[in-house]
């Protein structure tokens, strides 16, 4: 059975995010870290968040149920940090 450590998941997530934003001209001062916010820091639009979710599901070859992360009380969350996504993935993978 493959075990995914928190560090490995974060490394994978950062790589996927970097790949996604490579043409956007965005270069965060400290790189992408756990505190990086997708919308505020990287200017993600809703479709980019979905793109990220699909890319993660394809990478791990499984459905992850991101609606539980992206929805709160019937509305989209306004932003997400890399750390929040990592914690969610650690729980789901």
């Amino acid at each position: 059975m493959v075990v995914f450590t928190k560090e490995a998941i974060e490394k994978t997530l950062v790589e996927i995010v970097e790949d996604l934003i490579q043409d956007w001209g965005i270069d965060p001062d400290d790189g992408i870290t756990g505190t990086t916010l997708l919308v505020n820091d990287l200017d993600f639009a809703s479709v980019d968040i979905i793109q990220l979710c699909v890319a993660i599901e394809q990478h791990y070859d499984r459905k992850i149920g991101f609606q539980d992360l992206l929805m709160k009380d019937g509305s989209y969350v306004s932003d997400l940090s890399i750390a929040q996504m990592v914690d969610f993935l650690v729980d789901r993978i």
């Binding site: 639009a45 809703s46 479709v47 979905i50 979710c53 149920g65 991101f66 609606q67």
Partner: peptide, 12 residues
């Protein structure tokens, strides 16, 4: 909007 409009609530 974009395809995300449908993705979260409905696609799954």
């Amino acid at each position: 909007t974009n395809l995300a409009f449908w993705y979260i609530h409905y696609a799954s």
